[in-house]
Amino acid sequence: MFSNRYIFIYSAVMVIIVAALLSLTAMLLQPRQERNLTIANIQGILTAVNIEATSDDAEELYKTYIKTELAIDQDGRIASVYKNGRLEEGKVRPFDIDLKKELYNKKMGNPFIIPLYIAEKDGNTLYIIPLRGAGLWGPLYGNIAFGPDFNEIVGADFSHDKETPGLGAEISTKEFANQFIGKTIFNDAGEFVSVRVVKGGITTMPTAQQIHGVDAISGGTITSIGVSDMVNNCLENYISYIQNNFK
């Protein structure tokens, strides 16, 4: 009933229509989508320092609070400085660093740079570190904010693309993120221990260790491990910077 020729033409036409349609919408919508992504990024950074921003005032609030952006290289040296809307040192604006690419460079043993945001809020200097890692079905993102001693966490925010609703997806709730507040990443001896997400709850840890742990999501084991790994993998890059400047 259908000749090979017909089948061939049919599929060719279909592919062309579909490809054209999708590329067209992707191209037309890309600027808007990227803007939305940038705003979501900014909102994540602000949420980590407990500032609620809507998509309309996010950029305004960011300018008010985040005065300095730094890029730090693998040895803890400052690679670029972005202050008050101007790039003062280095080549890239730290906000534009593609964290995924830099973490890949790290994994491959190549040189890399990572961003650090410095916020001024209520007279305190807060340090915000962006995070990126892998969950069960897709990437995880987040931001962790530290107090002036760069040890105690003052806020955190996590989000994800496609974790299981009701299970892994619970990491993006306030309840989960707020557990991080007050935890520390260095032990009394000054060694980096990160903050672990503990399956079964932090009550299973020795009391002295509980300051370095938070409760995992029940039913979201792989996502919880993902968060734990992400926090460790992203924070450890800043150790030499912190030790050079805060000890």
Partner: peptide, 19 residues
Amino acid sequence: LVDQFLKAFAYDVSKQLSV
């Protein structure tokens, strides 16, 4: 297509639905 439009015009909804 629906996903792309949501991402551009209703980002909050798309975040909820992307899964």
